[in-house]
Amino acid sequence: MSMAGTVAQIADWDDAYANIAHIPGGAGFPDAWAQAAADFRERQRGTGGQPPGPRDIFGQKKEHRDAEFYLPAGQPRGMMVFVHGGYWMKFGPSWFSHLAAGALALGWAVLLPSYPLAPGAGLREMRDRIAAQIAAAAGEVSGPIALCGHSAGGHLAARLVCGDSPLPAPVLARVARCLPISGLFDLRPLQLTAMRGDLGLDDAVVRAESPLFHLPAAGCELHLWVGSDERPVFIRQSQLLQAAWAGIPRRTTLTVEPGRHHLDVIAGLADPAHPLTEALLGGL
Rank of each mutant, 00 (worst) to 15 (best):
A16L: 03
Q35K: 09
D39E: 14
A27W: 01
K62A: 15
V83G: 00
L71S: 08
G46E: 15
R77G: 07
L123W: 01
F91M: 10
A27P: 00
F69N: 08
Q35A: 12
W95P: 00
V7R: 12
P76S: 09
A105P: 00
Y115A: 06
G59I: 03
D56A: 15
A38Q: 12
Q60G: 13
I10L: 05
G28N: 10
F82D: 04
E125G: 09
W13H: 11
P52D: 13
L99D: 03
P116L: 04
P52L: 10
G49V: 04
E42T: 15
S97E: 02
Y87P: 03
L104F: 03
R41Y: 00
G28D: 13
R55A: 15
P116E: 06
H22W: 06
M80T: 09
G92C: 01
L112F: 04
D31Q: 15
K61C: 14
I57N: 07
L106I: 00
A21R: 08
R65S: 14
V110H: 03
Y115F: 11
D56Y: 12
I57T: 10
D39H: 07
F29C: 00
H64A: 14
P24L: 01
E42G: 13
W108M: 05
R124V: 12
G120A: 14
G78C: 03
G49R: 04
A73P: 04
W13C: 05
G26Y: 01
A67Q: 06
A100I: 02
L117H: 02
H22N: 09
Q60A: 15
L111Q: 07
A38K: 11
Q35N: 04
A8Y: 01
H98F: 13
I23T: 07
P52K: 06
A36S: 10
A109T: 05
G49N: 04
R45I: 11
P54L: 02
A109M: 09
F58A: 11
A8M: 08
R55V: 15
A27S: 11
H64I: 11
P30K: 02
P52G: 15
Q44A: 14
Y115G: 07
Q50T: 15
V81D: 07
I57C: 09
Y17E: 02
A103N: 01
F29I: 10
A18Q: 11
M79Y: 01
M126Q: 12
V7I: 14
A73V: 13
A101M: 06
P51E: 10
